[in-house]
Write a protein that binds this DNA or RNA. Structure first.
Lengths: 225, 225
DNA sequence: TTTAAAATATGATATTTGTCATAGTTTAAG
DNA sequence: CTTAAACTATGACAAATATCATATTTTAAA
């Protein structure tokens, strides 16, 4: 069993604000899991009962809309925490989490970390800061969804994934999503995504190779969005 | 100068978690302001440098989108706090606040309340809980914006305003917004709002009298959204 | 490696929404 | 109370997007 104290991933999230003693305790009670691509980690309406710390891999947080379509609300990667919101609000989760790649995660049970959230004010404040940042980000998403065209939103989604998750050696976007996933980020029909990507290809903004996408002209793409 | 300790409004927000001593200090340093309808309270990109506690009235929080149109991100009313996010993130605000009615607000300077946010863990946790709730609400807005039609979003906006702010004696929505404001909530053109409201009138879902709107058939309206 | 299932691609068409023009109404300032 | 400015209303048309159908390609399981 690996050790939280020496875990590099911790540096990227609020757990860095825990004391040495707290970390040792957390380390002792956490469980590590391997999650396969496509696997559901938790489902909307479930009690999450703890916090996930992502050591490796990527997953999507989705919410089912009234019309029966999933909306991807956030992509969560290595270094991120998942489940803090439900922890704080003491409610069932409003989102589902599904692995987009093979993942390595650590699960910290609620009862072990809840006390720290009340007692260690550095930790509480750090969680608070992350949440303030998420909320600001959510404002931006709301404005984009409300005011921009599907074409603009798709361009932006590509830029976001490029900026946030980077590219492979061949220049392909590291995160590989299906056209349906893109549709669920942008909030449109799968066919529309396919159509607009085809248009982007014709305009030499991107190239594709199966599901892989390479951005050829980032500036032009920024200009679209 | 009125007294925070005895202020009823406090019960509705995180300030209720302050101690008696803290409240007395806050009471001494706060300033009360009257704000006229239509007046800008703070603008996107400004340093807010404190927290507003709304004693009376309603205002809108907006963000300018790339295409030059304002998006209403949130309506803030009596009992709410404004400015906590910027306080926590120590950044300039990402939103503008504009009064939609005559308002009474108290302003608490940053340096007076910041210490409490670090020291009083009940207060910190309360702010955290509010933010978790806002974030959950933001998720819902994102899904609605992304997946629902303008017609559905407008129906939902009406229901939201009805549920949250209630009606006058004559059954009119208490919050009176221009068609343009509705357009900026829903993320559409003003003409589209006017057109869809006309349609709702024809279908006997609502009636209007100038800018005032009365919901005649809430159930049918819910069915639309 | 083969093959069925899943995903991508594209056309045809319907629907929704945006834009521009213009007219009528309401609101608020003088 | 009057009047200009702001807002609401509606038509005509254009543009964007959704839906349904079908063909092709890719992926992954056997």
């Amino acid at each position: 069993m690996s050790n939280c104290e020496q875990c590099i991933v911790r540096q990227f999230n609020s757990l860095k604000s825990l004391t040495k003693e707290e970390l040792i305790r957390i380390s002792g009670c956490k469980t590590s899991k391997t999650i396969k691509k496509g696997q559901l980690i938790f489902d909307e309406g479930e009690n999450v009962n703890g916090v996930y710390c992502i050591r490796e891999g990527i997953c999507k947080l989705t919410k089912l809309s009234a019309n029966g379509r999933d909306q991807i609300v956030k992509l969560v990667v290595k270094g991120d925490l998942m489940g803090q919101r439900s922890l704080v609000s003491e409610e069932v989760t409003n989102l589902s989490a599904t692995a987009l790649s093979e993942m390595e995660v650590c699960f910290i049970p609620k009862h072990e970390i809840m006390a720290d959230l009340h007692k260690n004010s550095n930790f509480t404040f750090d969680v608070l800061q992350h949440m303030a940042k998420d909320l600001r980000e959510a404002d931006n998403v709301i404005v984009n969804m409300a005011q921009k065209s599907v074409r603009q939103r798709l361009a932006e989604a590509l830029i976001y994934i490029h900026r946030t998750f980077g590219t492979t050696d061949e220049g392909m976007l590291r995160v590989i999503l299906s056209r349906e996933d893109y549709a669920n980020i942008v909030g449109t029909a799968t066919e529309s995504v396919i159509r607009i990507l085809s248009q982007f290809k014709k305009d030499n903004l991107i190239t594709t190779k199966g599901k892989q996408i390479r951005i050829e002209d980032l500036e032009a793409l920024k200009h679209v969005s």
